[in-house]
Computed example of a mutant assay.
Amino acid sequence: MAEEIINRVANSKLVTIDLEDFYPSGRRVKFDISEWLFEGLLLKEKDFRQQVKDHDWSQYKDSYVALGCSTDAIIPSWAYLLLSTQLNPFAKKVIVGNLDLLETVLFSEIITKLNVEDFTDKPVIIKGCANKSIPQSAYSFLIEKIQPVVKSIMFGEACSTVPLFKNK
């Protein structure tokens, strides 16, 4: 008589967290301010304000926008603030920086709001493989959030994990 195969992983209290499940949907846009500068380097206020006035901001509806400059121009802070005032009614999020920083900010906000109650006194596996771009900082944010309440933290897949933390 064959022995019954028992899936110990499925029957355990293990909780797997896949940061890809939290990935916010929406278009990511890098808005390069250099295109609105004289010769890509000099901000002329009157011309810049006219560009802002004439631009169709509705095209950024439900997008995540990273404001930046691809040239070595020195951009006054008010310029980014002015762009933000136009984007805020449409975009889901606006930051000054690159797309990597945008993803980091998004995950920081998501993890800050994460309810850790479901992880209390449980062994947790943080899934490592993702098809979407998850910033490395997101994993650190997650550990900072869950470590005070979990029994243990592992990284990888249920069949092959790397232990990171065990609550004593």
Rank of each mutant, 00 (worst) to 15 (best):
V149F: 10
K93D: 00
V149A: 04
L83G: 04
I146H: 06
D56C: 02
N131V: 09
D18K: 02
F90N: 04
E3F: 10
F165C: 07
A79M: 10
S137P: 00
A91G: 08
Y60A: 08
Q86C: 14
F48T: 07
A10L: 14
G97A: 13
N167T: 10
K53F: 15
Y139K: 01
P76T: 15
I134D: 00
S160D: 14
S84E: 03
C129W: 15
F141E: 00
L99Y: 03
E117I: 13
L87F: 13
N98C: 06
K168G: 08
K13D: 03
C159T: 15
D100V: 01
Y60R: 09
S108Y: 08
I111W: 01
S63Q: 04
E35K: 05
L83R: 08
L37D: 07
C69W: 09
F107K: 00
R49D: 09
F38K: 13
Y139Q: 06
S140G: 07
T16F: 03
E35F: 08
W57H: 08
K53A: 10
S63I: 11
L14P: 00
L67S: 03
K44I: 14
A2L: 02
D18R: 01
K151N: 03
L19W: 00
S160F: 09
A130E: 13
K127G: 04
L164K: 04
I153F: 05
Y23M: 05
W78Q: 06
Q50A: 15
D54K: 14
C129K: 13
G156A: 12
V65T: 05
K53M: 06
I17Y: 06
L106H: 12
W36I: 06
E20L: 07
E144I: 05
L114W: 05
R28G: 00
D54F: 14
C129A: 14
A130H: 15
K46T: 02
C159A: 12
K151S: 07
R8H: 12
L114R: 01
D18L: 10
F165V: 07
P123S: 11
M1F: 13
Y80G: 15
I6M: 05
E109M: 05
F119W: 06
Y80N: 12
P76I: 15
V29L: 10
R8V: 12
I110A: 05
L101V: 11
L114D: 02
K168N: 11
V65I: 09
Y60K: 07
S63N: 07
V116G: 04
G26S: 10
I74L: 12
A66L: 08
Y139N: 02
L142G: 00
Q86K: 15
V150Q: 02
I6Q: 02
F48M: 01
T112I: 01
K113Q: 08
S70P: 14
T112W: 00
P89L: 08
I33W: 03
L14Q: 02
L114E: 05
L19H: 05
D32P: 04
F119E: 03
N11C: 09
T71W: 07
N88T: 13
D32N: 09
S70Y: 04
D54Y: 09
I153M: 06
R8S: 03
G156R: 00
T161A: 14
V9N: 08
S34T: 11
W36S: 09
S137V: 13
Q50E: 11
Y23G: 01
Y139S: 07
S58V: 10
S160A: 12
